[in-house]
Design a protein around this nucleic acid. Structure first.
Lengths: 212, 212
DNA sequence: AACAAAAGATGACTGCGGTCGACTTTTGTT
DNA sequence: AACAAAAGTCGACCGCAGTCATCTTTTGTT
C-alpha cells in the first residue's frame, strides 16, 4: 500500500527543488537552464513540467516551503503576552531575514507574492488565509489588552503591518535600508503606525523624553 | 541644426512605444513578439534594443511616462490647504486609477517598481527622488498646520503612505479590493495611519458613533 | 498471471527574447 | 567636396523555456 507512485512523486519533487536551489544559488536563476537542472535532478527535462508550471514556480515553491516551516516555528514559540509591537516586529523580521538571504530569490518571490499572476490567485489566497490564521489571534489578544483599537477590522490591522513590511522590503531592494538597519526601521515604522502620524495630545508621560 | 539624428531617435522611440502599447493591449504582453512589434513600428528587430534593454522595459518606460505627466498635473492642480488625508488619497488614487487601467501592465510595472532589478536601481532611485520632491512640500505644510507629527522623518511619513498604497494595489490584484471600493479602502487606511492603531484617549467627540 | 487503462517520463521540437557582426547613415573636420 | 569616425540599423543566429507525441511504468481488474 506504500503507493510506489506517490512516494516517487514526492521524492522527485524534492529532488527537483533540491537541485534547483543548489544551482540557482551557485549560478543564479537566469543562468541556470531547465535542462541543466533536470540533469542535476537525474530526470528528463519534460518531467519537471509535471511538477511545476514554470521555472520560477520552482523557486517560489521552495520559498513558500521555507516560510511555512518558519511560520510553524513562530506559532509555537510566540510569546503572546509581550506588546503587540514586539510580536509583529519579531514575526516580520523572521520573514525578512529568511527571504533576504538570497537577493535574487527574494526579488522573484516578492514580485510573485505581492502582485501574483491570475493563474496563481487561488493558491495565493489560500496562503494569505493561513497567514491570517497566524496573526489574527495575536491581534485579537492585543485588542483585548487594549493595545489596539477594536473599531478597526483585523484585516485592516494586518494590512497596516503587511503594508509596512512590503515597504521595508522594497526599501531594502532600493538600498535605502541596509540589512542591519532593517529591524530598527521596521520597529520605528510599526510604532509610528500604532501611535499614529498625527501629533498625540500629550499623555506621553512614560517615555524616555523629558516629561515637559 | 535640427540634429537629424536626435529627431529621428525620438520619433523611433515613440513609434516603438506606440506600437508596443497597442499590441500589448490587443494581444497581451506575452503573446506579442518583439519581431512583430518591430514590424509594427516599421523597424528591424535589433533596432529596438538600441532603445530599450528588454521587452518589459518598453512597457515600464510607457508606464513611467504616463505617471510622470500625471504627476505634473497633480503638482499644478493640488490644493495644498485641504487636509493632508484628502491630498494623499487624491494623489495615490490618481496613480491607482492610472495604473489599474490595464491589469497586465499594472502587474509588470508594480513588480519592477516595488522590487527593481539591480540594473535599474539608479533610474529607480532618481524616480523615487522625484516623487519625494512632489510629496515633501505637502507633508511639510501639513506638519506646520499641526496635522502631522514633526518628530517623524518625512521619509518615514512618505513610507507609511506608500506602504499602504502598495498594500492596496496588492489587495486589488488578489481580488480582496474591488476597483470601486479602492478609494474608500485607501481613505480608511490612510485615516487609520494618521490616527494610529492604538485606542485614542477619548477626544473622538465629533465622529458618527454615539458618544458613549 | 495477464492485460488494459491510467499515470508518468522523455527528449526532439517550436517559438521567442536577446546578441552580434556586417552594413548604412550622419556628423564634423579638412 | 571628400572622407573617416561615430552612431544607428538590421536580420541571421543562439540559447533556452516550455510543449507534445511517444514510450515506459504502475495500478486495478479479471
Amino acid at each position: 500500500m506504500a503507493g510506489i507512485r506517490e512516494t516517487k512523486k514526492k521524492e522527485t519533487r524534492q529532488a527537483i527543488m533540491q537541485a534547483a536551489v543548489t544551482l540557482f544559488s551557485e549560478k543564479g536563476f537566469e543562468k541556470t537552464s531547465i535542462e541543466e537542472l533536470a540533469k542535476a535532478a537525474g530526470i528528463g527535462k519534460g518531467t519537471i513540467y509535471g511538477y511545476f508550471q514554470t521555472k520560477s514556480d520552482i523557486l517560489h515553491a521552495f520559498c513558500e516551503d521555507e516560510l511555512e516551516s518558519l511560520h510553524e516555528e513562530l506559532t509555537t514559540n510566540a510569546d503572546r503576552e509581550i506588546p503587540i509591537l514586539q510580536q509583529m516586529v519579531s514575526i516580520y523580521m523572521s520573514e525578512f531575514r529568511q527571504i533576504t538571504q538570497n537577493r535574487e530569490f527574494a526579488r522573484l518571490f516578492m514580485q510573485q507574492t505581492a502582485f501574483p499572476r491570475d493563474v496563481d490567485l487561488e493558491k495565493h489566497l489560500a496562503n494569505e488565509d493561513n497567514y491570517f490564521k497566524l496573526l489574527f489571534p495575536l491581534l485579537e489578544k492585543a485588542q483585548e489588552r487594549g493595545e489596539l483599537r477594536r473599531d478597526v477590522d483585523l484585516l485592516y490591522i494586518t494590512g497596516h503591518f503587511y503594508g509596512l513590511y512590503l515597504l521595508l522590503v522594497s526599501a531594502w531592494f532600493s538600498g535605502r535600508v541596509q540589512t542591519e538597519e532593517a529591524e530598527t526601521a521596521l520597529e520605528t515604522l510599526f510604532r509610528q503606525a500604532i501611535e499614529g502620524l498625527q501629533p498625540r495630545p500629550e499623555h506621553t508621560s512614560n517615555e524616555g523624553k523629558a516629561h515637559e
